[in-house]
Design a protein around this nucleic acid. Structure first.
Lengths: 205, 205
DNA sequence: TAGGTATCAGACCCATCAGTCGGTTTCGCC
DNA sequence: GGCGAAACCGACTGATGGGTCTGATACCTA
Protein backbone atom coordinates (compact mmCIF):
# COMPACT_ATOMS: atom_id res chain seq x y z
CA UNK A 1 0.00 0.00 0.00
CA UNK A 2 1.13 3.52 -0.76
CA UNK A 3 2.70 5.26 2.22
CA UNK A 4 0.44 8.28 2.30
CA UNK A 5 -2.54 6.02 1.75
CA UNK A 6 -1.57 3.89 4.70
CA UNK A 7 -1.27 6.97 6.83
CA UNK A 8 -4.75 8.06 5.90
CA UNK A 9 -6.14 4.59 6.42
CA UNK A 10 -4.73 4.35 9.92
CA UNK A 11 -5.92 7.81 10.85
CA UNK A 12 -9.34 6.94 9.54
CA UNK A 13 -9.42 3.72 11.55
CA UNK A 14 -8.52 5.52 14.75
CA UNK A 15 -11.02 8.26 14.11
CA UNK A 16 -13.91 5.92 13.40
CA UNK A 17 -13.27 3.93 16.56
CA UNK A 18 -12.71 7.14 18.47
CA UNK A 19 -16.03 8.62 17.43
CA UNK A 20 -17.72 5.36 18.30
CA UNK A 21 -16.33 5.37 21.82
CA UNK A 22 -16.66 9.10 22.40
CA UNK A 23 -20.29 8.88 21.42
CA UNK A 24 -21.13 5.92 23.62
CA UNK A 25 -19.04 6.81 26.67
CA UNK A 26 -18.45 10.52 26.34
CA UNK A 27 -15.27 12.39 25.46
CA UNK A 28 -13.92 12.96 28.96
CA UNK A 29 -14.90 9.46 29.97
CA UNK A 30 -13.02 7.80 27.14
CA UNK A 31 -9.26 7.49 27.37
CA UNK A 32 -6.90 7.40 24.46
CA UNK A 33 -5.88 3.96 25.70
CA UNK A 34 -9.47 2.75 25.41
CA UNK A 35 -9.47 3.61 21.74
CA UNK A 36 -6.06 2.08 21.13
CA UNK A 37 -6.92 -1.14 22.93
CA UNK A 38 -9.88 -1.58 20.62
CA UNK A 39 -7.55 -1.28 17.65
CA UNK A 40 -4.52 -3.08 19.09
CA UNK A 41 -2.48 0.01 18.52
CA UNK A 42 0.01 1.76 20.75
CA UNK A 43 0.38 5.21 22.20
CA UNK A 44 3.21 5.84 19.81
CA UNK A 45 1.00 5.30 16.81
CA UNK A 46 -1.64 7.66 18.13
CA UNK A 47 0.68 10.51 18.99
CA UNK A 48 2.52 10.05 15.74
CA UNK A 49 -0.66 10.89 13.86
CA UNK A 50 -2.32 13.36 16.23
CA UNK A 51 -0.97 16.21 18.32
CA UNK A 52 -3.30 15.70 21.27
CA UNK A 53 -6.61 14.23 22.29
CA UNK A 54 -8.29 17.53 21.56
CA UNK A 55 -6.69 17.86 18.14
CA UNK A 56 -7.80 14.31 17.48
CA UNK A 57 -11.38 15.11 18.33
CA UNK A 58 -11.45 18.20 16.19
CA UNK A 59 -10.26 16.14 13.25
CA UNK A 60 -13.07 13.71 13.95
CA UNK A 61 -15.51 16.58 13.81
CA UNK A 62 -14.14 17.85 10.54
CA UNK A 63 -13.77 14.47 8.85
CA UNK A 64 -16.69 12.44 10.14
CA UNK A 65 -19.25 14.49 11.99
CA UNK A 66 -19.63 17.23 9.41
CA UNK A 67 -20.23 14.74 6.64
CA UNK A 68 -22.68 12.66 8.62
CA UNK A 69 -24.76 15.64 9.56
CA UNK A 70 -24.59 16.99 6.05
CA UNK A 71 -25.62 13.73 4.45
CA UNK A 72 -28.39 13.06 6.91
CA UNK A 73 -29.93 16.43 7.67
CA UNK A 74 -28.81 18.96 5.08
CA UNK A 75 -28.39 17.39 1.68
CA UNK A 76 -31.82 15.67 1.75
CA UNK A 77 -33.67 18.99 1.92
CA UNK A 78 -31.66 20.89 -0.65
CA UNK A 79 -33.20 21.95 -3.88
CA UNK A 80 -36.67 20.51 -3.67
CA UNK A 81 -40.16 21.84 -3.78
CA UNK A 82 -42.64 20.98 -1.08
CA UNK A 83 -40.15 22.06 1.53
CA UNK A 84 -42.13 21.03 4.59
CA UNK A 85 -42.74 17.55 3.23
CA UNK A 86 -39.04 17.19 2.49
CA UNK A 87 -38.05 18.29 5.96
CA UNK A 88 -40.57 15.99 7.59
CA UNK A 89 -39.37 13.02 5.55
CA UNK A 90 -35.76 13.92 6.28
CA UNK A 91 -36.42 14.01 10.02
CA UNK A 92 -38.37 10.78 9.76
CA UNK A 93 -35.46 9.03 8.06
CA UNK A 94 -32.92 10.41 10.51
CA UNK A 95 -35.00 9.29 13.47
CA UNK A 96 -35.60 5.91 11.89
CA UNK A 97 -31.89 5.15 11.73
CA UNK A 98 -31.70 6.33 15.34
CA UNK A 99 -34.31 3.76 16.30
CA UNK A 100 -32.51 0.84 14.75
CA UNK A 101 -28.92 1.83 15.23
CA UNK A 102 -28.10 3.43 18.50
CA UNK A 103 -24.71 4.49 17.19
CA UNK A 104 -26.00 5.99 14.00
CA UNK A 105 -24.04 9.22 14.41
CA UNK A 106 -27.14 10.91 13.02
CA UNK A 107 -27.06 13.57 15.61
CA UNK A 108 -24.22 12.99 17.96
CA UNK A 109 -24.04 16.73 17.98
CA UNK A 110 -26.50 17.24 20.82
CA UNK A 111 -24.53 14.92 23.08
CA UNK A 112 -21.26 16.63 22.38
CA UNK A 113 -22.70 20.11 22.60
CA UNK A 114 -23.97 19.30 26.04
CA UNK A 115 -20.63 17.83 27.04
CA UNK A 116 -18.49 20.72 25.87
CA UNK A 117 -20.82 23.62 26.50
CA UNK A 118 -18.94 26.11 28.64
CA UNK A 119 -16.07 23.69 29.10
CA UNK A 120 -14.05 23.64 25.92
CA UNK A 121 -14.39 26.76 23.86
CA UNK A 122 -12.24 25.50 21.05
CA UNK A 123 -14.24 22.36 20.42
CA UNK A 124 -17.51 24.24 20.86
CA UNK A 125 -16.45 26.56 18.08
CA UNK A 126 -16.29 23.65 15.67
CA UNK A 127 -19.55 22.12 16.86
CA UNK A 128 -21.35 25.44 16.62
CA UNK A 129 -20.18 25.75 13.05
CA UNK A 130 -22.03 22.58 12.12
CA UNK A 131 -25.12 23.83 13.90
CA UNK A 132 -24.85 27.09 12.02
CA UNK A 133 -24.65 25.35 8.67
CA UNK A 134 -27.68 23.31 9.55
CA UNK A 135 -29.58 26.38 10.67
CA UNK A 136 -28.72 28.40 7.59
CA UNK A 137 -29.80 25.54 5.39
CA UNK A 138 -33.12 25.16 7.18
CA UNK A 139 -33.77 28.87 6.96
CA UNK A 140 -33.13 29.00 3.24
CA UNK A 141 -35.27 25.92 2.70
CA UNK A 142 -38.16 27.58 4.47
CA UNK A 143 -37.71 30.79 2.57
CA UNK A 144 -37.74 28.75 -0.62
CA UNK A 145 -41.03 27.28 0.53
CA UNK A 146 -42.44 30.74 1.09
CA UNK A 147 -41.27 31.82 -2.33
CA UNK A 148 -42.79 28.74 -3.95
CA UNK A 149 -46.08 29.43 -2.28
CA UNK A 150 -46.19 26.34 -0.07
CA UNK A 151 -45.49 28.17 3.15
CA UNK A 152 -47.40 31.13 4.47
CA UNK A 153 -45.45 34.28 3.81
CA UNK A 154 -45.97 35.55 7.35
CA UNK A 155 -43.98 32.82 9.06
CA UNK A 156 -40.63 33.68 10.59
CA UNK A 157 -38.14 31.46 8.79
CA UNK A 158 -35.46 31.84 11.44
CA UNK A 159 -37.99 31.04 14.14
CA UNK A 160 -39.16 27.91 12.40
CA UNK A 161 -35.60 26.75 11.84
CA UNK A 162 -34.72 27.25 15.49
CA UNK A 163 -37.87 25.50 16.57
CA UNK A 164 -37.12 22.55 14.32
CA UNK A 165 -33.57 22.24 15.59
CA UNK A 166 -34.79 22.38 19.17
CA UNK A 167 -37.40 19.74 18.65
CA UNK A 168 -34.97 17.46 16.86
CA UNK A 169 -32.26 17.78 19.46
CA UNK A 170 -34.77 17.16 22.21
CA UNK A 171 -36.42 14.14 20.70
CA UNK A 172 -33.05 12.57 20.05
CA UNK A 173 -32.25 12.94 23.73
CA UNK A 174 -35.58 11.47 24.75
CA UNK A 175 -35.36 8.60 22.29
CA UNK A 176 -32.17 7.10 23.58
CA UNK A 177 -33.52 5.22 26.55
CA UNK A 178 -37.28 5.03 26.42
CA UNK A 179 -39.46 3.54 23.69
CA UNK A 180 -37.65 5.06 20.71
CA UNK A 181 -39.95 3.69 18.02
CA UNK A 182 -43.15 4.80 19.73
CA UNK A 183 -41.71 8.19 20.53
CA UNK A 184 -40.51 8.72 17.03
CA UNK A 185 -44.02 8.00 15.74
CA UNK A 186 -45.67 10.37 18.19
CA UNK A 187 -43.11 13.07 17.58
CA UNK A 188 -43.50 12.95 13.84
CA UNK A 189 -47.27 13.22 14.11
CA UNK A 190 -46.94 16.42 16.12
CA UNK A 191 -44.29 17.80 13.82
CA UNK A 192 -46.62 17.36 10.84
CA UNK A 193 -49.38 19.00 12.84
CA UNK A 194 -47.12 21.98 13.41
CA UNK A 195 -46.17 22.06 9.74
CA UNK A 196 -49.82 22.24 8.77
CA UNK A 197 -50.08 25.48 10.70
CA UNK A 198 -47.32 26.95 8.54
CA UNK A 199 -48.94 26.20 5.20
CA UNK A 200 -50.68 28.87 3.18
CA UNK A 201 -54.27 29.28 4.20
CA UNK A 202 -55.66 28.95 0.66
CA UNK A 203 -58.44 26.66 1.82
CA UNK A 204 -59.81 29.13 4.35
CA UNK A 205 -63.49 28.73 3.51
CA UNK B 1 -26.87 24.62 66.79
CA UNK B 2 -28.52 21.26 67.15
CA UNK B 3 -26.32 18.39 66.09
CA UNK B 4 -28.68 16.88 63.54
CA UNK B 5 -29.40 20.34 62.21
CA UNK B 6 -25.74 20.98 61.72
CA UNK B 7 -25.41 17.72 59.88
CA UNK B 8 -28.20 18.66 57.53
CA UNK B 9 -26.81 22.15 57.05
CA UNK B 10 -23.40 20.81 56.06
CA UNK B 11 -24.85 18.23 53.71
CA UNK B 12 -26.99 20.91 52.14
CA UNK B 13 -23.99 23.17 51.67
CA UNK B 14 -22.00 20.44 49.95
CA UNK B 15 -24.92 19.47 47.77
CA UNK B 16 -25.65 22.99 46.59
CA UNK B 17 -22.03 23.60 45.67
CA UNK B 18 -21.86 20.13 44.12
CA UNK B 19 -24.84 20.71 41.87
CA UNK B 20 -23.44 24.07 40.89
CA UNK B 21 -20.15 22.55 39.77
CA UNK B 22 -21.63 19.40 38.25
CA UNK B 23 -23.91 21.58 36.18
CA UNK B 24 -21.24 23.94 34.95
CA UNK B 25 -18.40 21.46 34.42
CA UNK B 26 -20.14 18.11 34.15
CA UNK B 27 -20.24 15.24 36.60
CA UNK B 28 -17.26 13.29 35.33
CA UNK B 29 -15.29 16.44 34.86
CA UNK B 30 -15.79 17.66 38.42
CA UNK B 31 -13.75 16.06 41.17
CA UNK B 32 -14.82 15.71 44.77
CA UNK B 33 -11.79 17.82 45.62
CA UNK B 34 -13.07 20.61 43.39
CA UNK B 35 -16.24 20.78 45.43
CA UNK B 36 -14.42 20.61 48.75
CA UNK B 37 -11.92 23.28 47.78
CA UNK B 38 -14.80 25.64 47.04
CA UNK B 39 -16.12 25.02 50.56
CA UNK B 40 -12.80 24.77 52.39
CA UNK B 41 -13.77 21.31 53.56
CA UNK B 42 -11.80 18.09 53.67
CA UNK B 43 -12.20 14.64 52.23
CA UNK B 44 -13.03 13.39 55.68
CA UNK B 45 -16.07 15.61 55.91
CA UNK B 46 -17.35 14.52 52.54
CA UNK B 47 -17.01 10.80 53.07
CA UNK B 48 -18.41 11.11 56.54
CA UNK B 49 -21.69 12.35 55.08
CA UNK B 50 -21.80 10.49 51.77
CA UNK B 51 -20.94 6.94 50.78
CA UNK B 52 -19.53 7.76 47.37
CA UNK B 53 -19.57 10.34 44.62
CA UNK B 54 -22.43 8.51 42.96
CA UNK B 55 -24.45 8.31 46.17
CA UNK B 56 -23.77 12.00 46.61
CA UNK B 57 -25.13 12.83 43.19
CA UNK B 58 -28.25 10.75 43.67
CA UNK B 59 -28.96 12.65 46.87
CA UNK B 60 -28.56 15.88 44.94
CA UNK B 61 -31.13 14.66 42.46
CA UNK B 62 -33.59 13.72 45.18
CA UNK B 63 -33.08 16.81 47.32
CA UNK B 64 -32.46 19.61 44.86
CA UNK B 65 -33.20 18.65 41.28
CA UNK B 66 -36.62 17.16 41.88
CA UNK B 67 -37.82 20.23 43.70
CA UNK B 68 -36.39 22.67 41.18
CA UNK B 69 -38.07 20.92 38.28
CA UNK B 70 -41.28 20.58 40.18
CA UNK B 71 -41.40 24.22 41.19
CA UNK B 72 -40.45 25.48 37.77
CA UNK B 73 -42.18 23.20 35.30
CA UNK B 74 -44.82 21.18 37.09
CA UNK B 75 -46.46 23.14 39.85
CA UNK B 76 -47.14 26.20 37.64
CA UNK B 77 -49.40 24.27 35.28
CA UNK B 78 -51.35 22.34 37.87
CA UNK B 79 -55.03 22.99 38.40
CA UNK B 80 -55.72 25.81 36.01
CA UNK B 81 -57.97 26.39 33.09
CA UNK B 82 -56.58 27.64 29.79
CA UNK B 83 -54.04 24.88 29.83
CA UNK B 84 -52.12 25.93 26.76
CA UNK B 85 -51.73 29.48 27.98
CA UNK B 86 -50.49 28.19 31.30
CA UNK B 87 -47.94 25.92 29.69
CA UNK B 88 -46.73 28.66 27.39
CA UNK B 89 -46.34 31.11 30.27
CA UNK B 90 -44.59 28.44 32.34
CA UNK B 91 -42.10 27.74 29.55
CA UNK B 92 -41.63 31.46 29.05
CA UNK B 93 -40.78 31.98 32.71
CA UNK B 94 -38.46 29.00 32.81
CA UNK B 95 -36.62 30.20 29.72
CA UNK B 96 -36.46 33.72 31.05
CA UNK B 97 -34.54 32.63 34.14
CA UNK B 98 -32.33 30.65 31.83
CA UNK B 99 -31.54 33.80 29.89
CA UNK B 100 -30.51 35.82 32.91
CA UNK B 101 -28.92 33.20 35.06
CA UNK B 102 -26.89 30.62 33.26
CA UNK B 103 -26.81 28.46 36.36
CA UNK B 104 -30.51 28.61 36.98
CA UNK B 105 -30.96 24.88 37.40
CA UNK B 106 -34.15 25.36 35.44
CA UNK B 107 -33.50 22.35 33.37
CA UNK B 108 -30.24 20.86 34.29
CA UNK B 109 -31.93 17.60 33.46
CA UNK B 110 -31.12 17.68 29.77
CA UNK B 111 -27.43 18.14 30.47
CA UNK B 112 -27.29 15.29 32.91
CA UNK B 113 -29.43 13.01 30.82
CA UNK B 114 -27.03 13.48 27.97
CA UNK B 115 -24.07 12.85 30.22
CA UNK B 116 -25.37 9.66 31.82
CA UNK B 117 -27.36 8.21 28.96
CA UNK B 118 -26.09 4.68 28.43
CA UNK B 119 -23.29 5.23 30.90
CA UNK B 120 -24.70 5.06 34.39
CA UNK B 121 -27.88 3.08 34.61
CA UNK B 122 -28.40 3.80 38.28
CA UNK B 123 -28.31 7.56 37.95
CA UNK B 124 -30.35 7.44 34.77
CA UNK B 125 -33.08 5.62 36.67
CA UNK B 126 -33.45 8.61 38.97
CA UNK B 127 -33.29 11.16 36.18
CA UNK B 128 -35.86 9.29 34.14
CA UNK B 129 -38.18 9.34 37.11
CA UNK B 130 -38.21 13.13 37.06
CA UNK B 131 -38.84 13.13 33.34
CA UNK B 132 -41.68 10.70 33.86
CA UNK B 133 -43.32 12.91 36.46
CA UNK B 134 -43.03 15.86 34.15
CA UNK B 135 -44.47 13.90 31.24
CA UNK B 136 -47.40 12.55 33.27
CA UNK B 137 -48.15 16.03 34.49
CA UNK B 138 -48.11 17.48 30.98
CA UNK B 139 -50.35 14.73 29.68
CA UNK B 140 -52.94 15.25 32.38
CA UNK B 141 -52.83 19.01 31.87
CA UNK B 142 -53.57 18.54 28.20
CA UNK B 143 -56.36 16.09 28.88
CA UNK B 144 -57.78 18.61 31.29
CA UNK B 145 -57.68 21.14 28.48
CA UNK B 146 -59.55 18.78 26.20
CA UNK B 147 -62.11 18.16 28.88
CA UNK B 148 -62.56 21.87 29.49
CA UNK B 149 -63.10 22.47 25.81
CA UNK B 150 -59.98 24.55 25.19
CA UNK B 151 -58.12 21.88 23.29
CA UNK B 152 -59.39 19.97 20.31
CA UNK B 153 -60.52 16.53 21.40
CA UNK B 154 -58.68 14.83 18.55
CA UNK B 155 -55.20 15.76 19.71
CA UNK B 156 -52.95 13.06 21.10
CA UNK B 157 -52.14 14.20 24.64
CA UNK B 158 -49.12 11.91 24.95
CA UNK B 159 -47.82 13.11 21.62
CA UNK B 160 -48.16 16.76 22.56
CA UNK B 161 -46.45 16.18 25.88
CA UNK B 162 -43.54 14.41 24.22
CA UNK B 163 -43.28 17.14 21.63
CA UNK B 164 -43.23 19.83 24.30
CA UNK B 165 -40.56 18.08 26.28
CA UNK B 166 -38.45 17.63 23.17
CA UNK B 167 -38.75 21.23 22.18
CA UNK B 168 -37.92 22.45 25.66
CA UNK B 169 -34.90 20.23 26.07
CA UNK B 170 -33.65 21.24 22.66
CA UNK B 171 -34.08 24.98 23.09
CA UNK B 172 -32.30 24.84 26.41
CA UNK B 173 -29.35 23.23 24.69
CA UNK B 174 -29.36 25.81 21.93
CA UNK B 175 -29.76 28.73 24.30
CA UNK B 176 -26.66 28.14 26.32
CA UNK B 177 -24.11 29.63 23.98
CA UNK B 178 -25.80 31.62 21.27
CA UNK B 179 -28.12 34.61 21.61
CA UNK B 180 -30.28 33.21 24.41
CA UNK B 181 -32.69 36.14 24.63
CA UNK B 182 -33.37 36.30 20.91
CA UNK B 183 -33.72 32.55 20.66
CA UNK B 184 -36.10 32.44 23.56
CA UNK B 185 -38.28 35.01 21.85
CA UNK B 186 -38.31 33.19 18.52
CA UNK B 187 -38.90 29.86 20.16
CA UNK B 188 -41.88 31.07 22.17
CA UNK B 189 -43.48 32.56 19.08
CA UNK B 190 -43.34 29.22 17.30
CA UNK B 191 -44.55 27.37 20.35
CA UNK B 192 -47.62 29.58 20.50
CA UNK B 193 -48.14 29.03 16.80
CA UNK B 194 -48.11 25.31 17.41
CA UNK B 195 -50.49 25.69 20.32
CA UNK B 196 -52.96 27.52 18.11
CA UNK B 197 -53.18 24.44 15.93
CA UNK B 198 -54.27 22.44 18.96
CA UNK B 199 -57.16 24.68 19.93
CA UNK B 200 -60.74 23.77 19.17
CA UNK B 201 -61.82 24.90 15.76
CA UNK B 202 -64.93 26.71 16.98
CA UNK B 203 -64.31 29.61 14.64
CA UNK B 204 -64.19 27.44 11.51
CA UNK B 205 -66.36 29.57 9.30
C1' DT C 1 -16.34 18.17 84.35
C1' DA C 2 -15.46 13.78 82.32
C1' DG C 3 -16.34 10.80 78.83
C1' DG C 4 -18.40 9.65 74.59
C1' DT C 5 -19.78 10.65 70.06
C1' DA C 6 -20.55 13.43 66.01
C1' DT C 7 -17.95 16.07 62.89
C1' DC C 8 -14.16 17.11 60.34
C1' DA C 9 -8.81 17.29 58.96
C1' DG C 10 -5.42 15.69 55.86
C1' DA C 11 -1.90 12.34 54.78
C1' DC C 12 -1.96 8.32 52.18
C1' DC C 13 -3.12 4.47 48.67
C1' DC C 14 -3.93 2.85 44.23
C1' DA C 15 -5.76 3.26 39.74
C1' DT C 16 -6.03 5.96 35.58
C1' DC C 17 -4.85 9.19 32.11
C1' DA C 18 -2.61 12.50 28.75
C1' DG C 19 1.48 12.93 26.93
C1' DT C 20 6.87 11.80 26.18
C1' DC C 21 10.71 9.44 24.42
C1' DG C 22 14.16 6.29 22.99
C1' DG C 23 13.99 2.49 20.41
C1' DT C 24 12.34 -1.03 16.68
C1' DT C 25 10.05 -2.45 12.53
C1' DT C 26 8.35 -1.64 7.89
C1' DC C 27 8.40 0.42 3.53
C1' DG C 28 9.80 3.02 -0.60
C1' DC C 29 13.56 3.90 -3.45
C1' DC C 30 18.12 4.06 -5.51
C1' DG D 1 20.67 -4.89 -0.65
C1' DG D 2 21.08 -1.07 1.97
C1' DC D 3 19.77 3.52 3.47
C1' DG D 4 16.59 6.84 5.26
C1' DA D 5 12.26 8.06 6.57
C1' DA D 6 7.67 6.81 7.89
C1' DA D 7 5.02 4.08 11.05
C1' DC D 8 4.69 2.03 15.22
C1' DC D 9 5.96 0.05 20.02
C1' DG D 10 5.65 0.31 24.99
C1' DA D 11 7.86 1.67 29.23
C1' DC D 12 7.85 5.76 31.76
C1' DT D 13 6.35 10.37 33.97
C1' DG D 14 3.75 13.62 36.42
C1' DA D 15 -0.64 14.81 37.62
C1' DT D 16 -5.23 13.78 39.19
C1' DG D 17 -9.12 11.32 41.10
C1' DG D 18 -11.95 8.34 44.15
C1' DG D 19 -11.75 6.45 48.35
C1' DT D 20 -9.50 4.95 53.15
C1' DC D 21 -7.71 5.64 57.60
C1' DT D 22 -5.81 7.59 61.73
C1' DG D 23 -6.49 11.02 64.44
C1' DA D 24 -7.82 15.61 66.19
C1' DT D 25 -11.66 18.97 67.74
C1' DA D 26 -16.27 20.39 68.89
C1' DC D 27 -20.25 19.41 71.18
C1' DC D 28 -23.69 17.04 73.98
C1' DT D 29 -24.98 14.52 78.07
C1' DA D 30 -24.66 12.63 82.54
Amino acid sequence: MNKSLKRLATMQRIQVTGLHLFYSKGYYNTSVDDILKELSLSKGAFYYHFDSKEDFFIQIIENLLVRKVYGMLIQPIEGHDHTLTMIADCFEDALETAVHNELDYGFVLSNFINEFNGRNENIMKHLNEILKVWEVNLVSAIQRGKFNGHIDRHVDAEGVALYLMSAYIGIRTLMVETAPAARKYRFMAQLRQYFKSLEVKTTSH
